[in-house]
Amino acid sequence: MSSTIRPAISLLVLMTLITGVAYPLVVTGVAQVAFPDQANGSLVRDAEGKVRGSSLIAQQFSGDRWFHSRPSAGAFATVSSSASNLGPSNPALATRVFEDAGKIQVPGQGPVPLALLTTSGSGLDPHLPPQAIAYQLARVAAARQLPVSTLERLMDEHIEQPLVGPPVVNVLALNMALEKL
């Protein structure tokens, strides 16, 4: 029997040392040298060096002066992240979407983009499709007394279009640029 127990325990200990300790340490070591910014959470700091968030984690924006993020099922909670998990046939989904559409719809701008009415998978989606930003341009421009064309240009500068994914705008980056105008 010891011919089974000894290798079982010693190999478990060795594999723990190799894959559970050495491997993460090596990755951490290389990552902290090669990509320190990303490895530490892609933090965004203000002029005084204070952390104002992460460029990958959505923030809640309210009021007319800001571009709003996608709705979050977990009210933008980061610990822990969560989704609505509403089934497509759940009446609660339709009720929520219709209620929000009534609040957000701007007369003359057509139907509200679906991204502004649906919660994301993480509740922390930092992006919006460009159409969903465009839908908010007039409101933000009016509140900040800026020409719509200025904001449109700002939006265009912030569109990311990867080859293998849909175009998106990072809402936090856009709002920070907005503050600097």
Binding site: R70, A83, S84, N85, L86, P88, S89, P91, L93, A94, V97, F98, A101, G102, Q105, G110, P111, V112, P113, L114, A115, L117, T118, T119, S120, G121, S122, D125, H127, L128, P129, G165, P166, V168
Partner: peptide
């Protein structure tokens, strides 16, 4: 999603539970 059929709502592929970047 047919249950979201409403003139105030954009009719397109469902986005509930999906991330914009994917």
């Amino acid at each position: 999603n047919p249950t979201l059929n409403n003139p105030a709502v954009e009719q397109t592929a469902p986005l509930e539970g999906k991330e914009a970047r994917f």
